[in-house]
Amino acid sequence: MGRLTGKVAVILGASDARSMGAATARRFVEEGAQVVLAARRKEAVEEIAAELGGIGVACDIADEASLAALAQTALEHYGHLDIAVNYAGQSAQASVLDVTAESLRSQSDIHFVGTALFIKHMAKAMTGGGSIITASSLTVLVQAPDLGAYAGSKGGADVYVRVAANELGARGIRVNSIAPGFTKSAMTEDYFGIEAVTNAFLKEMPLGRFPTVEDVANTALWLASDEAFVTGQRIDVTAGQALRRTPRADEFV
């Protein structure tokens, strides 16, 4: 008997085997869940889903109809939806002086509007209660230069999570976020190739090692299971870096 036996989970952002989404899918399946994996790249996500005995669906978080269809697919295939995890994200960099309205809007579309509409459509499909989890970020907790649009839209989503948790509690739906730190994943692979960057970051992590996608998956498992009497919270997976700071660029030596 696994910790998620009998549960159906949607995981958005699982098109790469090294991603948080794929790691979460593996962990959930180990614990007995059935999974619907989603991402923009249909073939890639179908391949990962097939390995786990789940189904893969194309979904773009910036498209509301596509989110509604994702929830419907879970209901049509498995009859119910209990858990929904959103890792869809995209990093964009620009200084406060150079940022464009276009970039701010696009980051908001993905992280703020996208998260809000993900919560909306997953919650509507969760007729018997459930757990919705979305990815926040270390950048919400300690400031990083040039990530204003990214951090601002993620931070806005965290506030939305609290509002959603308050409203959806009556339906037995819990809503929380996970704030990963500097985690080696498909999205951050380029940074991990630069030793000056990884060294500087490691010094700011009290636990002395980088968070892994497995750490994030285990956190998602805790929040997903019926045991967690937790809602409206942001759970930290930053190796304690939230207690410290983001290293400055001049420290990348």
Binding site: R162, N166, D215, T219, V230, Q233, D236, A239, L243
Partner: peptide, 18 residues
Amino acid sequence: ECFMTGETMQVNGGLTLR
């Protein structure tokens, strides 16, 4: 399984929201 430190985890069904 837990890789969290230095945190206060609210296990109260969302009480702090209200």
